[in-house]
Each structure stands twice: as C-alpha cells, then as structure tokens.
Design a protein around this nucleic acid. Sequence first.
DNA 1: AGTTAGATCGGCT
DNA 2: GCCGATCTAACTC
Length: 194
Amino acid sequence: MEKVLPKEFYSRKTTIVAKELLGKTIVRKLGDIRLEGKIVETEAYGGKDDPASHAYRGITERNKVMFGEPGHTYVYFTYGNHWCLNFVAHEPSKPGAVLIRAIEPTTGIEYMKKFRSVSSLENLCNGPGKLTKALKIDNKLNGLDITKEGELYVVNTEEKTFEIGVSTRVGIRRGRNKFWRFFIKGNLFVSRVN
DNA sequence: AGTTAGATCGGCT
DNA sequence: GCCGATCTAACTC
C-alpha cells in the first residue's frame, strides 16, 4: 500500500510544508492511466504577511480554499492560459498554500509528452504551467482532498538525502524579500537555477 | 542564446 | 480596464 501523506502533514507552517514536500511523489489517476512525478521545486505563499499571496487581501470566492482545510488543492488560472497547482498548508486560522513549481516525471512519461506535445524530458514538467498541462490538471480539481487515494494525491516516497536550495520566489512583483522558494539542489528538472 | 509578442481568464489597487 | 505566482512560438543576434 501507498503511504498517502495525511492531513497532519499539511497542518504546519507553510514554509515547513513547502520544504518537506520536496522528494515526495504526486500521483495523478486518469481512468486506467497513472501518472507520477517527484516534487523538486516549491514555493510558499502566506496570508496578511505576504503581499505576493492571493490570500493577502483577505478571503474571496477564488482563494477561499487557502483559508480552509489543509491537505486540499488550490488550482487557479493565470495569464490567460495557465493553471497553477497549490496544496493548502498552514497552521490553524492562518491561510497559506504551497505552489508546486516543478516535478521530475517518473511514471506515464509518454502520456505526459502527448498531453504537452513535446518530446523533451527535461522540459516536460519544469514549470508550474507545464506540469499542470502534463498531468491534465485544471479548475475541476480545485478544492480536492489530496489526503485520500483519488484522482490526485501525494505519497511519501523513499527518503533520499539531497541538499535543499533556498531562494526568493519567481515571477512576482511584491514580496521579493522573502526566501520562500525551495528546490532540490542539482536536480535537472528544477525550473531555473539561482 | 536571448528577447518579445501574444494568448485571453478572473479578480480586483 | 488592467494586470498577474506563465509558456510558447517566432523572431533577431
């Protein structure tokens, strides 16, 4: 049996969860198709303390899941054609979510390539908009419980030792002073090197 | 190798 | 209206 990460895993400080998610495996089920990838890059987004976060200005129809139960997805649309995948993770009564920025594809690679119409493995999932397309993730998966074995969940894969890199976040205007981006050092599938 | 336009949705200083 | 937690394709150098 698989060890699905429980709700308690996500019920901690958002930055801690972002770091802890590195090396874990995302499982995406599409009927009989099974897609998997190892998380190699994440970013933490907070609440009132974080001007870069959607939750900064309080609760809205779009961001309300960031204020809800940890261990659910927050999927949103941006720049006209891109979906971004987040996992809700925070301490009680504080909003927060972890943006999945890159994964290393491990299972179902041929399907992912087809969904993205690219042939290069390195460029398959090395960016937030790319991995959602490869895994066929869109707003239908918003608010999904990822602590249960369903269409999408995260399993605790073998602990391997790796060095964690830390940097400022990517592609934001405000909140550039925070070092809330985490990635596996030296991993080929990280979206960019700082 | 590096830069730029275009795509085109939803939530707001 | 406008701008964003982006990516691709199509250009130029």
